[in-house]
Design a protein around this nucleic acid. Sequence first.
DNA 1: GTCAGCACTCGGTAGAGTGGAGTGCCAATC
DNA 2: GATTGGCACTCCACTCTACCGAGTGCTGAC
Lengths: 355, 355
Amino acid sequence: MVRTDDQQLHESNGDPLPLDARKAAILTAVVTEYIGTALPIGSQHVADLPGVGVSSATVRTEMAALEGDGYLTQPHTSAGRIPTDKGYRFFVDHLGGPGPLEPVQRQQVRQFFDHAHGEIEQMLERTSGLLADLTDCTAMVVGPSHEASAIRSIQLVGLGPRLALLVVVLADGAVQKQSIELPEDTSEERLAEASRHLAAHAAGVSAGMVAALAPATGDRAIDALVGAGLSALLSMRPGDQAEQLFVGGPSRLATAFDAVETVRSVLTILEQQLVVVSLLRDVLDRGLSVAIGAEHGFEPLASCAIVVMPVSVEGEKAGTIGLLGPTRMNYPQALAAARVVGERLGQRLGESGNL
Amino acid sequence: MVRTDDQQLHESNGDPLPLDARKAAILTAVVTEYIGTALPIGSQHVADLPGVGVSSATVRTEMAALEGDGYLTQPHTSAGRIPTDKGYRFFVDHLGGPGPLEPVQRQQVRQFFDHAHGEIEQMLERTSGLLADLTDCTAMVVGPSHEASAIRSIQLVGLGPRLALLVVVLADGAVQKQSIELPEDTSEERLAEASRHLAAHAAGVSAGMVAALAPATGDRAIDALVGAGLSALLSMRPGDQAEQLFVGGPSRLATAFDAVETVRSVLTILEQQLVVVSLLRDVLDRGLSVAIGAEHGFEPLASCAIVVMPVSVEGEKAGTIGLLGPTRMNYPQALAAARVVGERLGQRLGESGNL
DNA sequence: GTCAGCACTCGGTAGAGTGGAGTGCCAATC
DNA sequence: GATTGGCACTCCACTCTACCGAGTGCTGAC
């Protein structure tokens, strides 16, 4: 979090700019060009751009000032400038929100959602692939949490003489399961009977709220089954109730960074679902839609930027979209893609009744 | 792993050896050392190893011969030798099968399976992580195919007034689902009734075999529901019946290769589930447990080796384990890990009744 | 305030030189 | 005849140097 005092005041309102118009234009030019070329940008290059209209000498003076203020930096004395995290931050804050998507990409998104159907997990997985394709970043899609979702159906299905599967359907369309070893051979009818008791006891309640005790039926065997079912229900919560994470296009990391060590360490992070999910949540909680460099406070990703976008269904939080790339990622494009896909995904989840 | 003389006599069949004992020993030494160091191995280095017992000059002569026969190669004139794919092939063929696992690793495996429980998908996912940890390779775990598995339970659960979820439980414990939009508001009782008809019609049959037509009930609304359920059942087959793939530890690729371009292209392959699954099947079908370099005929992975191990439950094929690494991967270790984990996994799947 | 001009800095590249690891060959040895 | 020590040779990896050029900061003119 490299923001200075005055800077956080403005945020898209009419606060005084920390930079005058020309400095802002030059900084924006440097960021844009650097994002495109990944090469340090010199004053001549900036002066040549349309819309700048001053000589390279003037640009140099301004650049020196921008460097003094911490927006730009030089890899070495006689090189051009590259943006600092603070420079990117300014750029992002003054984009004026995500722009529109390229027509080709709009088309791609439309086509995707026209053909998407079926299982929610599969759709989220594919969405992560879509996002990676659109942005050339690694995409992260976090599914809805089933924490508060009510149990819609609960059923014991026999798989073998002493083996049953507890299948729980939640109101948001999620299905959870857990296998149960039975103490004794049990017929399908007895399982059905136990299922009915379980259903009567747990239906409508959220899975986290189910009490461990169900009223006795007078039939010891059934009571045992119901008890086993309930304990299975309780045991599967911690692992499975958590949000699911889908990572799309991790190979893009190898395009973005040319140090294999960086690629390795970022990939390692991505393998830790919990870390990624909480990182995204953390960024969202702080009200950011972009976390640049050290802003997220997570050292191993210091050379990365993260774009996050909440997915909501009818106003309810239903997941998160994240994009991970180098700090010199294409923010306008990433933001645009995240917004459009986020909206369409939320819409889609609403239609198909998942959450 | 420097083995001498009598070593090649054992090879299961009585084929004449392509190499005499000393050449085999030297080749084995070069492979082993190169796997360990990733540096070209010189004649002096080999001569210094215990068990070789000849001078470096002799080793040089033998190495030159091995190079002539295509088992070794030189990066450049004045460098040591590194194995060719053919060299690795000889090495692997003459290992005499996977060796035992390190005690520490045995312990790690035991502990893993002692604590593994619950959902099959989660277990497969974690198994891929375990394998990656054990071998420092990227691991691939392919779950059982549900192709032939019979339908055990089929149920329509209402999620909204016009929305239902078709939940199908297969005999192997897999659960599949598909949301269905209903043409009209339908009560829970009607859904239950339709579920009973579906179940009566489809139970015991494998999902692929379900006929699209169910006998009419005389109730048009129920017939419509049953029809919708059946078509959903049929539609979800192609995508979901296929084997699931779990990839563990992709970051290991960035450790194994130091060219970021190689990492990128291999990661790209791994993102294509179908390609990976069929590649593994292909290698297995050809009766191999190791495919080195170009052997699998898949150009983008020419610098990789793949170790495959079928997972079987009570003699039935129930999945596949794969390890992906550079051609200079540690074959003995990888084979040992794949074998042990494969066995334990099969055992485990058997116990919990999944397939 | 802007800009052309200029001296300066410094990374990247190319070329020359060097050290060393490793080779192939050969003659001596067992 | 196989093995081995010795030796000349090759070639990479590394260092050092020189040099080019992109880009800078500064200054004085407009």
